[in-house]
Design a protein around this nucleic acid. Structure first.
Length: 483
RNA sequence: GGCGGCGUAGCCAAGUGGUCAAGGCAGAGGUUUGCAAAACCUCCAUUCAUCGGUUCAACUCCGAUCGCCGCCUCCA
């Protein structure tokens, strides 16, 4: 099987053919750091990280870059409101960003370039565009001349003449063409600015991504990801700037765009005010549930945010984690290397092995088909049922347990890119807690031996109140946190 | 006005031109259990927005209609 990816540029699924054999370049549009990011913003952070981790697990050497936009109108306005510098605002929310993505189980990018650290590169690109006649300076501003770029509109499938320019926002009268966009903005009084050949000013929004992606990944690279709302104008403009300046045909080869998170049928956004921040949501739901909530839906489709959906995802995540914990508990400390030869004389083991092996193939195939995580999760739950059934039927020492360590390795493999199995013990010193609980369980065991059901039940009920669930089974009593 | 997307069971959500369609949540019954929990088994869409067309065969292809959403302005 080979990896197929839906490319916005062609509007079709395409086979993945890396540009460079040594590494795979992946650029994702990161946050503008003027506030905490909301749960809709979190979607690309999660999904593109999952895609990147899957690529890594398939053996690609991925170089993953996410920019931090640390200079723009919103940051400047916020700084004015609070009476602090733009840099203070940016630093504050960059720190918050790192805290939040870590809690969301998102692996850090390899590089997080900041716009303000790349003014020199940005000016370099603008200069070359001006030299080539692709951009024109006016009184302190520099605009990109859309009419000079034939391919303009290819990504978004828009024609410049069909755009309703000025319908909602007045067109800057300095522009030759309403679709032209600003590369360099003339400094206004009291705003942060940098010197340039066109006077003091600051970069426009789109140019930083061209500058930083090409600096870290080269003129042509494999993947460029972002939200669907960035297709136009942001990504269209990035292509125009980059290709006009370097003369290369391909800027990013595959363009990936995630769908939106809706709130009651409407896009969640800061401007509509219908948002909930990621950090607020993480107070209410475990990370695994939030990730599952996103991954149970294909990344290109819309998701409707709902409490019911999140609650369902929480129950689902718990089911998965419980099975994983069962595996862990059954596998001996000094596990034997699983050898498929050892199961040849057991029909039961052979069947189990083949069933898991076959589901494994289907799971990976689904992931390779444009990262179909909902189908992947479906296969994973087929496995969960197989494993639970297998365990329910009883597991003896030896090959019967060894095969479970093989299954656990499979699960670990999937979770290296999905990140939906809760393996944590909520930060509590689990060793000690477990020692205490073993004492309690022993005590209750003697009560049950005496058939003192009243006390035994009360002990269990009280523990449930305290947030700890006791579960009795033929092989003994186990405990877990109540969610 | 232009462009793009979506409409599958109570809810969420995959999928295929040809055994009347994965998985999850919720629900019903059962097995197991001292009870509980977990787990397992069974049931839960003759139907895939509507109407036409192509085809031996469509939910899957084409057209139209209705409904919803997004982009064309900052936006993940």
């Amino acid at each position: 099987m080979s990896l197929k990816i839906f490319n916005t540029l062609s509007g079709k699924k395409e086979k993945f053919v890396p540009i460079n054999p040594d590494y795979t370049g992946f650029y994702v549009c990161g946050p503008t750091v003027y506030d905490y990011f909301h749960i809709g913003n979190a979607r690309p952070f999660i999904i593109f990280d999952v895609i990147r981790r899957f690529l890594i697990s398939r053996g690609y050497n991925v170089r993953y870059v996410m920019n931090l936009t640390d200079i723009d109108d919103k940051i400047i306005n916020r700084a004015k409101d609070e009476g602090v510098t733009s840099k203070e605002i940016a630093d504050r929310y960059i720190n918050a960003f790192f805290e939040d993505i870590q809690k969301l189980g998102v692996r850090p990018a390899d590089v997080y370039p900041r716009a303000t650290d790349h003014i020199e590169e940005i000016i370099g690109i603008i200069s070359s565009l001006v030299e080539k006649g692709a951009a024109y300076p006016t009184a302190g501003d520099v605009f990109y001349d859309v009419s000079q770029f034939e391919e303009y509109g290819r990504l978004s499938k828009k024609k410049v003449e069909d755009l309703q320019a000025g319908k909602r926002v007045a067109v800057d009268e300095l522009k030759k063409n309403p679709a032209d966009f600003v590369l360099w903005k003339k400094a206004k009084q009291g705003e942060p600015s940098w010197p340039s050949p066109w006077g003091n000013g600051r970069p426009g929004w789109h140019i930083e991504c061209s500058a930083m992606s090409m600096k870290f990944l080269g003129q042509s690279f494999d993947f460029h990801g972002g939200g669907q709302d960035l297709i136009f104008p942001h990504h269209e403009n990035e292509i125009a700037q980059s290709c006009a300046s370097t003369g290369c045909d391909v800027f990013a080869k595959y363009w990936l765009h995630n769908g939106f998170l809706d709130m009651k049928g409407e896009k969640m956004s800061k401007s509509l005010g219908n948002f909930i921040t990621a950090r607020e949501l993480m107070e209410l739901y475990p990370t695994a549930a939030i990730r599952l909530f996103f991954l149970q839906k294909h990344y290109r489709g819309p998701i409707d945010f709902s409490e019911e959906g999140l609650n369902a995802a929480r129950t689902t995540a718990e089911r998965l984690s419980l099975t994983y914990k069962k595996l862990m508990d059954l596998i001996p400390e000094n596990r034997e290397e699983f050898n498929a030869e050892n199961i040849k004389n057991s029909k039961r083991l052979e069947e189990f092995y083949e069933r898991i092996e076959s589901l494994d193939g289907e799971l990976i195939a689904s992931m390779e088909d444009d990262f179909n995580t909902p189908a992947v999760i479906g296969k994973l739950f087929d496995m969960v049922r197989e494993v639970n059934k297998y365990i329910d039927d009883g597991v003896a020492d030896g090959p019967e347990k060894d095969i479970l360590s093989w299954v656990q390795m499979k699960f670990d493999g999937y979770d290296r890119f999905l990140g939906i199995i809760d393996k944590t013990r909520d930060g509590i010193d689990f060793e000690r807690m477990d020692n205490v609980m073993q004492t309690v369980i022993k005590l209750r065991h003697s009560l049950r031996k005496e058939k003192n059901w009243v006390l035994a039940d009360q002990l269990r009920d009280d523990l449930t109140e305290a947030g700890i669930l006791l579960e009795d089974s033929a092989s003994g009593t186990t405990w877990r946190w109540r969610k």
